[in-house]
């Protein structure tokens, strides 16, 4: 009897090795361990076994069952693992297949540059303010010391709505509005769209953007203006970038200065972008003309201030090298997709 049990055990273990899937395994289990299985039938035929042998046979069979069950369980795990692997393999995909029609979205380059400028100036304690784009001549020109028929108006070809209302030619009227309604200290940046009667071409647009800053307080000097713009230059283009002031004229500032920044592309060594000068003209600035302060109701003996302004398109152009200004306003998606932010 012992031989028979051993024979079944060994044969089963042998057969187990050939089982390739869980189905075959189950069949084998039923054949050997099932109710009518080979091993079970030995227990069933216990009646024919001599009584003193019965515990022994029982023990042999149980030991054999345990061995087989363990072996089957092992095989089961093995097969399950193999089957899972097979399934995962079958589920493999070609990850290089393209994704169609995605749209990542982006802000407009003008907004991207403005956001950067805002971060810099709000970080320096400036408050960003806004004003109307259709503006009174009074704020746009007269309070900026540009009276009617002043030749300086030629430089800013103006769109008129009527004799007293214009499309603002610069963001300075916002400054005038602040100066006439607030008391110093004032530290603001105004920004937005401005309008000049220039036909649109690669380098001109009748609609463009400006950002201007204004500081009014006691004892503000040209040195403070330089300090502020030096900081601005470093934040914009990194350490080592500085400013160069050149005398100039604006009706609303005195003294006035054109401000060049170290060319960010060549760090002042001279390149194609800065036409070998090492400098890029970026800003107009100066000390607020006392006449402007007085017209706005600020005591020019007590207070002084500085103002500066820059064209945002110019900065965008320096940053992104936009080959044609019209790109900025025709909204071809291929151009817009160039940006990310």
């Amino acid at each position: 009897m012992r031989e028979k049990v051993l024979e079944i055990t060994n044969r089963t273990l042998e057969e187990l090795k050939t089982c390739q899937d869980s189905q075959a395994l189950e069949q084998l289990r039923v054949r050997v361990l099932g109710k009518k299985g080979e091993l079970t039938s030995i227990l069933r035929g216990m009646g024919q076994v001599e009584p003193e042998m019965r515990p022994k046979v029982g023990q042999w069979v149980n030991e054999a069952r345990e061995t087989i069950e363990n072996a089957i369980s092992e095989s089961q795990k093995e097969i399950a693992k193999r089957e899972k692997e097979k399934r995962l393999q079958a589920e493999a995909i070609d990850v290089t297949l393209p994704v169609n029609d995605r749209s990542a979205g982006s802000l407009h380059p003008m907004t991207l540059v403005l956001e950067e400028l805002f971060d810099i100036f709000t970080g320096m304690g400036f408050e960003a303010v806004e004003g109307p784009e259709v503006e009174f001549d009074h704020y746009n020109f007269e309070l900026m010391n540009i009276p009617k028929n002043h030749p300086a108006r030629d430089a800013q070809d103006t769109f008129y709505i009527d004799d007293n209302i214009v499309l603002r030619t610069h963001t300075s009227p916002v400054q005038a509005r602040i100066m006439t309604t607030r008391k110093p200290p004032i530290r603001i940046v105004s920004f937005g769209r401005v309008y000049r009667a220039d036909e649109a071409d690669a380098t001109h647009s009748p609609v463009f953007h400006q950002l201007e800053g204004l500081v009014i307080d006691e004892n503000i000097s040209m040195g403070d203006l330089k300090g502020t713009l030096d900081t601005f230059a470093r934040r914009l283009y990194g350490d080592g970038v500085t400013t160069r002031f050149r005398p100039s004229f604006f009706p609303f500032t005195e003294p006035s200065a054109e401000v060049d920044l170290t060319c960010a592309a060549c760090r002042g060594k001279g390149c194609r972008i800065c036409k070998d000068t090492g400098w890029i003209e970026v800003l107009g600035s100066g000390m607020v003309n006392p006449k402007v302060l007085e017209m706005c109701g600020i005591d020019s003996k007590k207070y002084s201030g500085f103002a500066f302004g820059m064209g945002v398109e110019r900065l965008a152009n320096l940053k992104y090298n936009v080959p044609d200004m019209r790109y900025l306003y025709e909204n071809d998606i291929r151009f817009l997709k160039h940006f990310r932010g």
Binding site: F118, F121, T122, G123, M124, G125, F126, E127, A128, V129, E130, P185, R187, V215, D217, E218, N219, I220, S221, M222, G223, D224, L225, K226, G227, T228, D230, R244, F245, R246, P247, A257
Partner: peptide
């Protein structure tokens, strides 16, 4: 103009903010 120093504004500090 090269003689203009780069100075920091005196006076009250102001909190910058956006519109």
């Amino acid at each position: 103009y090269d003689a203009i120093p780069s100075t920091l504004m005196n006076g009250v500090t102001m909190a910058g903010k956006r519109h």
